[in-house]
Design a protein around this nucleic acid. Structure first.
Lengths: 204, 204
DNA sequence: TAGATTGTTAATCGATTAACAATC
DNA sequence: TAGATTGTTAATCGATTAACAATC
């Protein structure tokens, strides 16, 4: 199978989310047209995406909603993503409580902080450890992805520790570029860039 | 000037951020090559982006760091973005305290919540109001962008209220698609999609 | 069958990269 | 001048859209 772009993967996740809510409302078969009107994407793109995943629908009927949802889920996440959170401030807590993290596809297995007052407790059933224990805990829990939710001053040293602990992917919320070896993938989420970029769009 | 894509705007914001830290370290002139090695983008793309903004550099010397930074800032944000936050839970608080919101380009002018215990207080100097007062406060503060940081069940009704209040842009953190009239721009940030999409990348 | 819907092939569009000319 | 760096034109690449054939 050819390599699928992150874009198409993101859309697949959007389809899953949309299918879930349509199924809740009793939908059994779903046309690309319906998905189109709910998601705002074009029907052609949706059919093309679904075809790229290798799923076929029924002309005149559409796609079996349940089947498509399971198929996409299967495809997108064969296993569960094990995630470790670094930094249990407001952002960290917001992430822990983020509703979509309650599902099976993403499992937050551990959180780390330097604040002794926070360690050795649980937040929403996620254990919080002293950051010094990261390598050990990450090995135990087999976490693959780390989240940087610490102040930007600490971001690089946390990233170094993540690399040392063997994490393969990093989602970075600190507004700073962290440097990591080539075998580690970083996804930056700079909230202020999202806002400014939207603002610039509005101005044209 | 031709319409610039959100992508190039995002990169401009990345350049600004990078320039800031290079200037802090004493840099005066900066080549596309240096920016390239810090940002991970190619030097050609950086030159092309800068040229698209209409800025010229000096062959053999590079770009005046200060000048370029100011130029990009000017270009990217002629005015300040006035932002209103809906929902003062963990995520909302994290956003209020997000360091980049302390700068002049994005000003969080008001926050809203339904919880009476939270209203009529301030968090990091941002006043929190009862959500019923949104239309009035938004008109007063001339906010243009709203942030949805409420539970997903409340997201659509908050979006409706934002539209009614005259906001032109919405950044939506709730993992649900909100429906708005065509003149309102929505930017979705679904944290779980970011994670899963990174996870899928790692698996290939 | 007729009509709705999928699936695919070709065309378009936009963004990135490569090659190289211009300039200090 | 020579060499480093910018800026631009052309080529490539990938993603989206349009057109239409296939199918139930």
């Amino acid at each position: 199978m050819k390599r699928l772009s992150p874009k198409i993967i993101s859309r697949a996740l959007l389809y899953i989310r949309t299918l879930e809510s349509l199924i809740e409302n009793g939908a059994e078969f779903i046309s690309s047209n319906l998905l189109s009107s709910v998601t705002g994407l074009t029907d052609v793109q949706i059919r093309k995406d679904i075809a790229a995943f290798g799923k076929v629908g029924k002309p005149r009927v559409g796609y079996d909603a349940q089947e498509l949802k399971h198929f996409l889920e299967d495809f997108v996440t064969r296993n569960t993503a094990h995630v470790a959170l670094f930094g249990v401030g407001n952002l960290g807590k917001a992430i822990i409580r983020y509703p979509e993290f309650q599902n099976q596809k993403i499992k937050l297995v551990a959180a780390f902080d330097v604040d002794k007052a926070k360690v050795d407790k649980e937040i929403s059933r996620v254990p919080v450890y002293d950051i010094a224990r990261a390598p050990q805990i990450i090995a135990q829990t087999r976490a693959e992805i780390g989240i940087i939710a610490v102040p930007k001053e600490a971001a690089q040293s946390v990233a170094d520790m993540m690399v040392k602990s063997g994490l393969k992917g990093i989602v970075n919320f600190a507004p700073i570029n962290v440097t990591v070896p080539g075998h580690v993938t970083v996804r930056d989420i700079d909230l202020s860039i999202e806002f400014l970029s939207l603002f610039c769009d509005l101005k044209r």
